[in-house]
Amino acid sequence: MSAPAPTATPAAAPALAISGLQKSFAGVRAIRDLSFSVPKGRATALIGPNGAGKTTVFNLVSGVYGVDSGSIHVNGVDVTHLPSRRRIRTGVARSFQNIRLMSHLSVLENLLVGQHVRASSLAALLTPYRLIPNHRWKREARAALAESGLEQYAEETVGALPYGVRKRIDLVRATLAGASVLMLDEPAAGLNPSETNALRDHLKALIARGLTLLVVEHDMHFVDSICENVVVLNFGEKIAEGPLSVVWRDPKVREAYIGTDEEA
């Protein structure tokens, strides 16, 4: 794996560019004129109080919801009106707040689903790969697990695994899809300190490989340890952007988080 190019200039096309995004639900404006971009090979956090619209942004970028107006570009490709199924081919994948792995499939089978983008021909669909010992798809999935130190879980049923392990398998699945931009919805929520550390190392390794992360997270220590840039949302509007240490002192941000006046 090559190290990320530190020479990447800010002028290079951003991994994710959101411009003038608007979305309403039954008259309630969930996202208001939102614009921000996520530079390649970096981690950016999307923070804000509950109901600020963070998950809605993920749903708009992944295509679960259609936009009312505005545009979304992934790696320079306009995906605004692309069907959700085709967006992963532009390099964007996401995780869900509640882990959405297929719980009665094995870990390996879940990862094979993640490989679909790179094995989607009719021939690939009908190859009886399970009859072929050590088929390259299985080899590749096992290698990805081994890289994350999770190889012992390959044959386990996902539903029976600890929460922290499932979170990381979700990450491995997204990386196997060949995604270059990962949107992670509260990756550290519900994890104990050692699981959080394992996740942090995992994410740092992904950034070192050149992946771009957009992270929704409430744990500010976690955000501080991996994200260089933070975008703050409140009532669907961007109220601040910049390094966490700076935005956290912004009076508007403090007001949005009223009642939780602790320093990060």
């Binding site: 992963i88 499939l105 993640g114 899809a177």
Partner: peptide, 18 residues
Amino acid sequence: LYLTAVKSDATVADLMGI
């Protein structure tokens, strides 16, 4: 495998490109 995936979580299967 995709039959099971679609049954288990059609949204995720769709986002995976299926």
